[in-house]
Simulated assay, not measured.
Amino acid sequence: MSNLSFKFLEKYYPVFIEGIQWTLLVAMLSVLFGAILGTLLCFMKRSKLSVLKVPIPKVIASIYIEFIRGTPLLLQIFIVYFGTTSFGVKLTPLVACVIALSLNSGAYVAEIIRSGIDAVDKGQLEAARSLGMNQRMAMQHIILPQAIRNILPAIGNEFVAIIKESSMASAIGVAEITYGAKLVTGATYRNFEPLIVAAICYFILTFTLGRLMAYAERRLKGNDSR
């Protein structure tokens, strides 16, 4: 243990600061676009629209969700980054990473939203319909506000997961925390210490976000009890 030295931080701490900034940017964009895609997939999966008795939107959403959840994220990042090049589209590593993480997150968010809606008592939808509301109005004014409270903690957990999974973006050159650790290792020839610093950076981000989400959840429960 006496060989451990973190003196390199005096010179290279900006590399980790920049890595934190890129990690947060990638995570926030991915969760935002993932939430939009997940909402669309959720309503596609709940759709009763069918062609020749085949529920096309539901089938498409189900296949997409199962495929994304059944394949490794790193492979998805490679497919987006290298696959688009095959079609003559050159994406920057950052854009490719955000697209891949958003596509991945969307599949999980779709299931989060679906479970949040299903957790609302079905009797409330029936009561809303009995008051003259149509399906859309009942969903908008009665079901979704309650579902949002149910899914917020899970969305926070998804944000935490994306922060950690963004480390895979280093494989295509996105300058996030893990990539920064690799750069410092190459410059200092120290393998272990930069990884420890990177791990601490991820822990600080996820721990802080976890506490913020726990606080928000308590506030929501407090509002519901009034």
Results as ranks from 00 to 15, higher is better:
Ser47His: 02
Tyr81His: 11
Arg211Cys: 06
Ile17Pro: 10
Glu111Thr: 10
Ser130Cys: 15
Tyr202Pro: 07
Phe82Pro: 04
Arg219Tyr: 04
Ala107Gln: 02
Gly88Cys: 07
Cys201Arg: 00
Gly106Gln: 01
Phe192Pro: 01
Ile163His: 07
Phe82Ile: 03
Gly132Asn: 14
Phe43Val: 04
Ser225Cys: 01
Pro145Val: 11
Ala127Thr: 13
Ser166His: 07
Pro153Gly: 02
Lys221Gln: 11
Lys90Phe: 12
Ser225Ile: 10
Gln135Met: 00
Gly70Trp: 04
Asp118Glu: 15
Met168Asp: 03
Glu158Phe: 11
Ala128Pro: 04
Met139Val: 08
Met28Ala: 15
Tyr13Gln: 13
Ala138Ile: 08
Glu18Gln: 13
Ala61Ser: 10
Lys48Val: 14
Ser130Leu: 04
Phe82Ser: 01
Ser102Ile: 00
Gly38Ser: 08
Ile17Trp: 14
Met139Glu: 02
Ala100Leu: 07
Val15Ser: 11
Ile17Leu: 15
Ser167Lys: 12
Arg46Cys: 04
Ser166Leu: 14
Tyr13Trp: 15
Arg226Val: 12
Gly123Ser: 13
Leu4Tyr: 12
Gln140Cys: 07
Pro194Gly: 10
Leu40Gly: 13
Lys11Ala: 09
Gly180Gln: 07
Tyr81Pro: 01
Met133Lys: 03
Leu9Trp: 02
Val197Lys: 12
Ser2Pro: 06
Leu4Thr: 06
Ile148Val: 15
Val89Leu: 15
Leu73Arg: 09
Thr85Val: 12
Phe6Thr: 07
Lys45Asp: 09
Leu220His: 06
Ile117Arg: 06
Ile99Trp: 13
Val160Tyr: 04
Leu131Ser: 14
Ala214Arg: 13
Tyr189Gln: 05
Arg149Ala: 09
Gln124Lys: 05
His141Ser: 11
Ile163Leu: 14
Ile155Ser: 02
Leu91Gln: 03
Tyr189Pro: 01
Asp118Tyr: 06
Ala119Glu: 02
Leu52Ala: 15
Thr23Trp: 00
Ile172Val: 14
Glu66Cys: 09
Gly180Glu: 01
Ile99Gly: 09
Thr85Leu: 15
Gly173His: 11
Thr84His: 01
Ile56Leu: 15
